[in-house]
Design a protein around this nucleic acid. Structure first.
Length: 571
RNA sequence: GUGCUUAUAGCUCAGCAGGAUAGAGCAGUCGCCCCCUAAGCGACCGAUGGUGGUUCGAGUCCGCCUAGGCACACCA
């Protein structure tokens, strides 16, 4: 598709001596359309040229006038204060967008990531613990990033780095040894295991000896003791059955479930390399890497005093393994910000272990904490909102609303599911990743305003129109002059920006940018829909508007899909 | 205590790596179903924590203050 911004930059380049790429970053899009479609602020040139910004703008305009007359993409240039405002040729914009829509089944899809390998590590729940709303963000942010990178042509690898190792399993094994007869793990295994975990934890706090036995159990597990390994497998299998139910409902997928345990036999390499490079130090019997000289005051512990590994070691082993196996360009960790220090440490240590290319590709996509209005969630205190309760709650509420608004709707349950799940996904992905979120049932159960349901509802409306007219016009027959009104143009500009929006999402690893975009598009279409009659006597006008409707539906659906949301056809 | 992070309307959030009059949604008040789905549209109401600085220009960058969150080696 034509790149108007680039075109404008190259025009300005020819009359100034500023580098084209730099110019492109200066060009902005005015908030008010009366100031044009693109704008070049001349203020920054004032000092260098020793002239007032408006004078510079006028001068540039004069120099450009000639070129612009010959350039069909740009309709006119106007000076407004210190700004040089460009008005693009709307006919060309419309033609471009419509052509693109008609060409591609998957609008906005791209090959810009071709040949690049991106790892996204997300979800990564702890085995033997319930899946609660705190796990929602990593799961959904990761899933969405995974889809978007893939859509832009990157070779993307989704990894669920299961928390299936560590002292916690020594504790679980100890609990099982002590209380095997008291718990029937065949029914409701997750909650039973959680009970055991809470109980053993309390005991460990009171009794140092028990804690020591737990650590020993973990050491046995690491050394391949059959009893411990079998038990560990049992805990793992039972947990995965539960997790997979949730992944199925949310439609979340992974390419690999290699968790911490997978790297257990790969930690020796980490120790070896660090030793060879002389980076390893002893401290109270444990082995550490000092990071003082890179500005991190807490050293990174890589081996405990009893010789067993720690999560940092396994993460480091994972980096080495992934570099070798996937040759990654980027490796994203979608993990809450409480682990900021941990990632700073292992990224620093990674520089000693892998080539610079890999060390540079490591990125912690740090997201904010989810808490309840009453405070922090804690599995141990039992004040968590379980994900199944949330899912059931939103679906139930969606069903209620359907009964109220559209009682004769077929496949009510299926629609309620899509709307309920959609609300959860959209709600989770609509605020910036880094910010804390307070989970609130009223917000979760709201289907009005800027919500997932709004996007879906708008999509359903487009479907409804298309169904009523019964055809999709050929784009060659569309008369662009029928789409020059304010509402149509706003929609078309948004559609034009879709691919750019996706690129922004990957630049910042921020799916909420796409959420906001979809809201904008749905809003623009809703206004258009309310202002205009789409189905009219004027066949040409109707065709143009129907085609626009078709385009909006296409983009909404594709965008929602990239967030992980499904669209109902009716609701 | 040290480090990181957040602070925008009554509430929940936007604000394109400094740019034109700070935008939405919810809540509140009012208007709109003769008409393609009112889970909608339109209108009103309402805001940059405090302070100093950098700049032609600061919600955005820097300093200090205040308030919240997170982390600070043998848990993950």
């Amino acid at each position: 598709m034509k790149n108007f911004k680039q075109d404008i930059a190259s025009q300005i380049y020819e009359v100034t001596n500023i580098n084209e790429k730099e110019l492109e970053t200066y060009i902005e899009t005015p908030k008010d359309t009366k100031n044009g479609d693109y704008s070049f602020p001349c203020f920054r040139l004032a000092k260098e040229l020793k002239k007032a910004p408006p004078a510079i703008a006028n001068e540039l305009k004069e120099k450009l006038e000639n070129k612009i007359e010959k350039n069909e993409n740009i309709e006119k240039v106007k000076v407004s204060g210190g700004y040089l405002n460009f008005f693009i040729n709307k006919n060309i914009l419309i033609k471009e967008v419509l052509t693109e829509i008609s060409n591609e089944k998957e609008y906005g899809k791209s090959e810009i990531g071709k040949g690049k390998n991106i790892i996204v590590e997300y979800s990564s729940p702890n085995i033997a613990k319930p899946f609660h709303i705190g796990h929602l963000r990593t799961t959904l942010i990761g899933n969405s990033l995974y889809k978007i990178y893939k859509y832009l042509g990157y070779n993307t690898i989704g990894i669920n780095h299961l928390g299936d190792y560590g002292t916690q399993f020594g504790k679980m094994i100890e609990a099982y040894k002590m209380w095997e007869n008291e718990y029937n793990l065949e029914e409701d295994p997750i909650n039973k295991m959680m009970d055991m975990y809470v109980r053993i934890n309390n005991l460990c706090k009171q009794d140092e000896e028990v804690l020591e036995r737990c650590r020993q159990n973990f050491k046995l597990l690491e050394d391949g003791d059959k009893y411990c390994v079998d038990l560990w497998n049992k805990f793992k299998d039972l947990s995965m059955i539960e997790f997979n139910k949730i992944y199925d409902i949310l439609n979340v997928k992974f390419d690999s479930y290699n968790g911490e345990a997978f790297y257990a036999d790969k930690i020796d390499d980490v120790i070896k390399v660090l030793e060879e490079k002389g980076k390893l130090q002893e401290s109270d019997g444990a082995k550490i890497v000092d990071l003082e000289d890179v500005g991190i005051s807490t050293p990174c512990l890589v081996q405990k005093a009893n010789g067993s590994s720690i999560y940092a070691t396994r993460d480091l082993a994972a980096i080495m393994y992934r570099a070798k196996t996937y040759n990654f360009d980027k490796c994203l960790y979608v993990v809450a910000y409480e682990q900021n220090l941990h990632f700073k440490q292992i990224f620093a240590v990674a520089k000693y272990l892998v080539d610079e290319k890999y060390a540079k590709g490591l990125k912690h996509v740090s997201y904010g904490m989810v808490s309840l209005p009453t405070g922090r969630m804690s599995t141990r205190l039992g004040n968590v909102v379980k994900i199944e309760d949330l899912i059931n709650g939103t679906i139930e509420k969606a069903e209620e609303i359907i009964t109220e608004k559209n009682a004769q709707l077929k496949n009510k349950e299926e629609v309620a599911k899509k709307v309920g799940i959609g609300a959860i996904i959209f709600n989770t992905l609509s605020t910036a990743t880094i910010k804390d979120q307070i989970f609130d049932w009223d917000t979760a159960l709201n289907f009005q305003g800027e919500t997932g349901a709004y996007i879906q509802y708008t999509y359903v409306r487009t479907k409804s129109v298309l169904e009523k007219v019964g055809y999709i016009p050929k784009f060659e027959d569309i008369k662009v002059e029928n789409l020059l009104d304010e509402h149509s143009l706003e929609i078309l500009k948004l559609i034009y920006n879709f691919k750019d929006t996706l690129i922004q999402v990957t630049d910042k690893n921020e799916p909420s940018i796409l959420s906001k975009y979809l809201i904008e598009l749905a809003k623009a279409y809703s206004s258009f829909y309310n202002e205009n009659k789409i189905i009219t006597e004027d066949k040409q006008l109707q065709d143009a508007r129907v085609y626009l409707t078709y385009a909006v539906g296409l983009v909404l659906k594709q965008g929602a899909e990239l967030l992980g949301m499904e669209m109902p056809e009716k609701m």
